[in-house]
Write a protein that binds this DNA or RNA. Structure first.
Length: 819
RNA sequence: GCGGAUGUGGCGGAAUUGGUAGACGCGCAGGCUUCAGGUGCCUGUGUCCUUCGGGACGUGGAGGUUCGAGUCCUCUCAUCCGCACCA
């Protein structure tokens, strides 16, 4: 027997080369149009920075396994790759080093490309692009203009979140605990004119359509919470002194009779006017100034004492005509509702705290069935309100009070959302320019389609100065107005990079299209993505934005897709020694080093074997060794068998060892297929292939005939292919001369899944006392008799009354005794 | 505070529908091969007791339902994640 050594360094490049040469994983749209079944498998596109890390290896190992499985189960698969190439890290690097972000980004992309190829990921490279390439961002700009022309992109002045460190505004979604999600600096509030996308118009659809997609429940929950739909009523309170109406939003109109004061946000535009002439001007001005000076984090904490000052005015409660004093207090937010609230201290914790701090009356209007203390925010019977409503359950009263308000013209049903419009402009360099020209005469003028892309100009000073670095590129900024031809100026803000990544999956479908972002027919044919895979950290931002943009493009007639991602899988993080991998901790496992030492197959298969892919998992160096041993054993066994068992067929008459081996092979087919098809159980799928190999290895092979052994081994290689493609392709080729990826997925033969006998478990009072081989076709009575005949069962039954005999056919007999 | 997830040997995990707890792998122990091995192969491995036939205990904890519970119910503890002055 020749010396067989598993050498991934020789095997892997050989197959990679073949796949590259033959463009094995490319799929044309023409081909797909004729295919009986297609599938779009997509992993979230990487942000190219430095080198790929272990998380990338995981997401593409998962995605590639799915892509291969789909291909071999008869689907024509689109599995593309690209790069989310605009963004702050490259720009910050440029500020530090002076190196153009394009250079560092392209270097990172080259490194990602090389490694993805070394990992043997089955990517259709013909559709590759970076979002920073003009041929891509030309269409990002086109999409922006589409939204602009249909009122879905607009510019307005608003209180926005400003990161002083990155010197740019942020979307609400990018503020975490009052800090910039990128750099951690405390975020400030600023009043600025910015560009927004009208995502709030889509709040209901974004909420409702979650029911139509197969996503993990926790991701859907996060999106629901983020949209934050609240049903209630808008109720108008009138300030008679100034003759002005102030609507408020409340989810609890049933507590209207319990309102004892009224509060406005410090940012409310009327605050100063209300206080004027009341003697409260100074106190109010001081308070407002103080509140505005606070950071978002200081302002946001819920357990902070409730401060505020009297405005010197009153409003009238529309339900009972009571005069309520008006306050300004920073626990009321301008961004939510109307920036003003009615305060019901008896039934709202915050209002209660404020009332206690400012000696305001507390009036109970809902009975607490438990008789607890105030504030009480639960349900109960209405009291102290109005004869018409007192005594009603509060939920019923709520409906009737709203009806009454509506009839009187003092209010109406209303829905509020936590979701804000998406702030998309950034005062940064390395992003997609916003294709708008500001003209003194014409206002905001879209750059005509034939002048796109608006190129990102080269500059030398990347430092943020509170306005976009683009503003310094004077030659670029100064243009003639496309409408009137007079001198005008370009918009100098760039777009949030989340805009780039909100439509890339559409571009993949028609990546070479020079005349359009994508041909609607082509995109419609591939979309939605059948299986989307990525990190849960994108549960809100990216996934919400992509859903919004898909819906918007569909509404504008460019697409016919409501939801971009039919199925979503979120993979867990890989940690080392229980902690997130980081350079500062020094616990980084580098994919490049792994591949160098063990080969890509070992790295990929180990990552899938470590545990359920949606869970976090801790890296183990010795675990990798185990996977390397297994792949080596598989390859060596196949290589040896290939020499011994050339072309051996499975005989008609099987010996007992052959029968056992073939049964295991068909069991493994069934097991792996189920694990891949129903769920993402790659770990147990790989374990099943291990069991199969264990059954076949030399010592255990017995006198099984060569044909059966060969069949079992080629089945093992075939089943392992989605997880460890190179070694599987090689082993399969050695055994059969064939190409495993061109073979259909194996099908289990039912005859080999059935058994003549099974191991009957015999229990007494639910405890296992013995086991025995029993005929599969035995009747229940026969099984009971068989069990009772076992000596160890007799021992436990002797001298006791048999109360019951329970039979689970094919599994067990349980004899219940007493005494 | 609200919402969600997780908890099983020394470790990662398996048990898909209420029916044999611990598949598979790591680690560890013993052996064989080689002997230079950090290679390869075989056997054993939940804990405790044992007269070697077996027996008791065992899935974070406490109860419960059931012939039978890791799985269902109630309460509880711990860890992690998301949201959080949203009216």
């Amino acid at each position: 027997m020749a010396d067989h050594r598993y050498d991934p360094k020789e095997i892997e490049p050989r197959w990679q080369q073949l796949w590259a040469q033959e463009r094995t994983w490319e799929v044309s749209n023409e081909e797909a149009a004729k295919a009986p079944q297609t599938s779009y498998v997509l992993e979230m596109l990487p942000y190219p920075s430095g080198e790929p890390h272990i998380g990338h290896l995981k997401v593409y190992s998962v995605g590639d396994a799915v892509a291969h499985f789909h291909r071999r189960t008869g689907r024509t698969v689109l599995h593309p790759m690209g790069y989310d190439a605009f963004g702050l890290p490259a720009e910050n690097h440029a500020i530090k080093t002076g190196q153009h972000p394009r250079e560092s980004t392209d270097a990172a992309i080259a490194s990602f490309q090389r490694q993805f190829r070394e990992w043997g990921v089955s990517i259709d490279w013909s559709r590759e692009f970076g979002t920073h390439e003009p041929r891509y961002y030309r269409w990002t700009q086109w999409i922006f203009l589409q939204l602009f022309e249909h009122g879905l992109a607009y510019r307005k002045e608003a209180a926005v979140k400003w990161c002083p460190n990155d010197a740019t505004v942020l979307a609400n979604e990018q503020v975490v605990d009052g800090r910039c999600e990128r750099c951690g600096a405390e975020v400030e509030a600023r009043q600025l004119e910015q560009w927004f996308f009208r995502i709030t118009d889509y709040a209901d659809r974004l909420l409702d359509d979650l029911d139509t997609i197969h996503w993990p429940e926790h991701v859907k929950t996060m999106q629901r919470n983020w949209i934050g739909r609240s049903e209630g009523a808008e109720v108008t309170f009138r300030c008679e002194e100034l003759d002005v109406d102030y609507p408020v939003f409340t989810t609890r109109p049933d507590t209207l009779f319990g309102a004892t004061f009224f509060v406005m946000a410090p940012e409310h535009p009327d605050v100063e006017r209300l206080a004027a002439g009341t003697g409260q001007e100074d106190a109010v001005r001081d308070y407002v100034n103080h509140a505005m000076g606070e950071s978002v984090e200081e302002r946001g904490s819920a357990d902070k004492p409730k401060t505020g000052v009297f405005l010197g005015r009153h409003v009238v409660n529309p339900v009972n005509g009571e005069r309520l004093p008006m306050y300004v207090a920073d626990y009321v937010l301008m961004e939510y509702g109307t920036g003003a609230i009615m305060a019901v201290p008896a039934h709202d914790e915050r209002d209660h705290a404020f009332a206690v701090a400012h000696n305001l009356p507390v009036k109970r209007v809902i009975e607490d069935p438990e008789g607890g203390e105030l504030p009480y925010s639960g349900d109960g019977t209405l009291t102290n309100s109005h004869p018409e409503f007192d005594g009603l359950p509060n939920r019923e009263a709520l409906e009737r009070i709203v009806d009454w308000l509506d009839r009187e013209g003092k209010g109406h049903k209303s829905i509020n959302y936590r979701l804000r419009d998406w702030l998309v402009s950034r005062q940064r360099y390395w992003g997609c320019p916003i294709p708008i020209v500001h003209c003194d005469g014409c206002g905001m003028v879209p750059v005509p389609d034939d002048q796109l892309p608006v190129p990102l100009p080269d500059i030398t000073d990347y430092k943020p100065k509170g306005r976009s670095p683009l503003a310094a590129a004077e030659d670029w900024v100064a243009v003639d107005c496309p409408r009137c031809g007079k001198p005008a100026r370009r918009e100098t803000d760039t777009m949030d990079t989340f805009v780039d990544s909100s439509w890339y999956f559409l571009r993949y479908t028609d990546a070479g299209n020079d005349g359009a972002a994508f041909a609607p027919a082509v995109a419609n044919a591939w979309m939605p993505v059948d299986q989307y895979i990525g990190g849960v950290e994108h549960a809100i931002l990216h996934l919400m934005y992509a859903r919004f943009l898909t819906k918007a493009l569909t509404d504008l007639g460019h697409l016919d897709v409501q939801e971009p991602f039919a199925r979503l899988f979120t993979q867990g993080m890989i940690t080392k020694d229980g902690a997130k991998m980081s350079k500062s901790r020094g616990n980084v496992v580098s994919p490049a080093a792994l591949v160098e030492r063990y080969g890509a197959d070992t790295a990929r298969a180990y990552i899938l074997f470590i545990g359920p892919p949606d869970h976090d998992a801790d890296w183990s160096d010795s675990g990798v060794e185990g996977m390397y041993r297994f792949l080596g054993r598989l390859w060596r066994t196949c290589a040896a068998a290939a020499e011994e068992l050339v072309d051996a067929p499975v005989p008609d008459e099987l010996g007992p060892d052959a029968d056992r081996i073939l049964r295991k092979a068909h069991w493994a087919i069934e097991k792996v297929t189920g694990d891949m098809d129903q769920r993402f159980a790659f770990n147990t799928a790989i374990a099943a292939v291990m069991e199969l190999l264990n059954e076949v290895t030399a010592e255990k092979r017995g006198d099984a005939d060569p044909g059966s052994v060969r069949f079992a081994l080629m089945t093992a290689a075939s089943l392992l292919f989605p997880f460890a493609p190179h070694v599987s392709a090689d082993a399969y080729h050695l055994l059969t001369g064939g190409r495993v990826w061109e073979e259909p997925w194996p099908a289990a033969e039912p005859a080999f899944l059935e058994r003549d006998t099974f191991e009957l478990v015999a229990q007494v009072n639910g405890k296992v006392r013995d086991r025995v081989q029993a005929p599969t076709r035995a009747s229940n009575d026969e099984l009971v008799a068989l069990a009772k005949g076992l000596p160890n069962i007799q021992q436990h039954v002797d001298g006791k009354d048999i109360v019951k005999e329970i039979v689970v056919p094919g599994k067990l007999v349980n004899i219940v005794v007493r005494g």
